[in-house]
């Protein structure tokens, strides 16, 4: 588990526009123009978001100077999802026990 990477991932994901960009990239590679098209943003603004995503390692960009298609890098996203899922499981497990506990106390044997 790498706290720094996870934190970078979550910080990059905090913005809804960046999440929208990632969602679009989940369908396949896209250029800045293609990404900007459905968004109410200038190319410049989209480029800024792409830079944040790239620095967080969530996307990579092609080398070709003009074309530079963006591509999703799934590993950090998977890691973040996995971490959240385990965190969530902690509480799900607790609530299973809470349900059992509530069942018990209503049978009348609270005091043990």
């Amino acid at each position: 588990m790498k706290p720094d990477q996870l934190n970078r991932t979550f910080a990059a994901l905090a913005d809804p526009t960046r999440r929208a960009i990632l969602a679009k990239l989940a369908e396949g590679e896209a250029t800045v123009n293609e990404l900007a098209e459905p968004l109410p943003l200038t190319l410049q603004a989209v480029s800024k978001h792409l830079k944040v995503l790239e620095q967080a390692g969530l996307i990579s960009r092609g080398r070709t100077a003009q074309w530079r298609p963006c591509r999703l890098e799934p590993a950090p996203l998977r890691e973040a999802t996995h971490w959240l899922e385990r965190y969530r499981q902690f509480w799900e497990g607790s609530f299973d026990r809470l349900a059992a506990h509530l069942h018990e106390i209503q049978k009348g044997d609270t005091h043990g």
Partner: peptide
């Protein structure tokens, strides 16, 4: 947990229905 296409966010919600009155929960 999944905001858009599996993108994780810093928050999540769990909803449960318990067979118990509210004050007990």
């Amino acid at each position: 947990t999944s905001a858009t296409n599996g993108t994780p966010t810093r928050e999540f919600t769990i909803t449960r229905v318990f067979e118990a009155p509210r004050h007990l929960v």
